[in-house]
Design a protein around this nucleic acid. Structure first.
Lengths: 177, 177
DNA sequence: TTTTATGTGTGACTTATATCACGGTTGTTA
DNA sequence: TAACAACCGTGATATAAGTCACACATAAAA
């Protein structure tokens, strides 16, 4: 639940996730948090890499979803390693590409699909990271998807009717797919 | 109007825009084209950089908006220069960062704002690149914003009433802001 | 000039989603 | 055990946007 990176914060080092899961959000002017993607062990925060390279400020909000160990690599090493180790260069480039793709997928989701599909997608992602028993409230989900509790409740009901999930208080169990 | 890069196409080189303007789109399954951002002279297609580095396929669609000159740099040079020239490294990193930011802004726009604001934003962007006399139909705009002609027509009418634009056949003149 | 294609305007309607206003349930604290 | 807070369900209604139908205007082609 800890905030690792606030919007507007200056970034001085590249962050690598050693273990745990980190959730990245985009924030609007009123502080509404829109979920973008997860980062987990072995992944790097591309944005932090880019920002670090220019001493710029963060455009996103990062929160720990589980306990996590983060390795912060000072800018100087970042640049040095880029030219020195091909494997590091490959790692960085691959990270970029993957984050970029996630972002594009997010755009697809909100530009081309309806709430029901987005919810399904979202739940699958959570299940992937956290296992099939999701400890979250309808309100939590609504926040991440920039929707409202009632809408999520109704959609979950429909999914339950289709036997995709079982709804408990404070948790949702994914059973199909 | 020429397509420079199709979705699914394998990328073998990094592309730099020497002059002209290129428009990037995201495509859905039915071929609907959602406008993401412009690239112009001096900018590089970050995605092409990333993909090129792994011989992967394109996730986006690029079209020339004006006549343009594109420089294609083979992968081999890309890697070499990265470690050899600090200026090239800086250029690449900066390009990434800028494209990443654009993508985040796009997400903001579709996640947090309504059609009227998005249209205003869109028109301003076009005006920036092409001048205040935009040669495009309402249908063109609707396609880029993944909306429909009627909606755009109505919103433009409202903007005209507020004296922000003058609507002509086949073109729109931006007068205020 | 007539025809045809393309672009625009507008009312009526539909749909997805958001919001409001409740009431009910469960778990926690006093 | 009472009372309180957090969570969930659900009908009613509101709103933004998309769709349909059609009229009309302009420009190009025949």
């Amino acid at each position: 639940g800890e905030t690792l990176l606030k919007v507007g914060q200056t970034i001085r080092s590249t962050m690598l996730i050693l273990n745990g899961i980190v959730k990245l959000y985009r924030e609007d002017d009123e502080g509404k948090e829109f979920f973008i993607y997860h980062l987990d062990a072995g992944q790097a925060c591309s944005l932090s890499m880019i920002c670090a390279a220019k001493h710029e400020t963060s455009e996103i909000l990062a929160k720990a979803l589980t306990d996590a160990t983060i390795l912060a690599i000072p800018l100087a090493f970042m640049e040095q390693w880029m030219s020195k180790y091909k494997s590091w260069y490959q790692f960085v480039i691959t990270s970029y590409r993957n984050r970029f793709e996630e972002l594009l997928k997010t755009i697809d989701a909100i530009a081309f699909t309806n709430m029901d599909e987005r919810l399904e997608d979202y739940l699958k992602k959570q299940v992937n990271k956290l296992g099939s028993n999701l400890k979250m409230t309808h309100q939590d989900i609504a926040n991440d998807l920039n929707s409202s509790r009632e809408v999520i409740s109704r959609l979950l009901k429909k999914m339950e009717a289709k036997n995709w999930v079982v709804i408990h208080r404070n948790s949702i169990e994914w059973i199909k797919h």
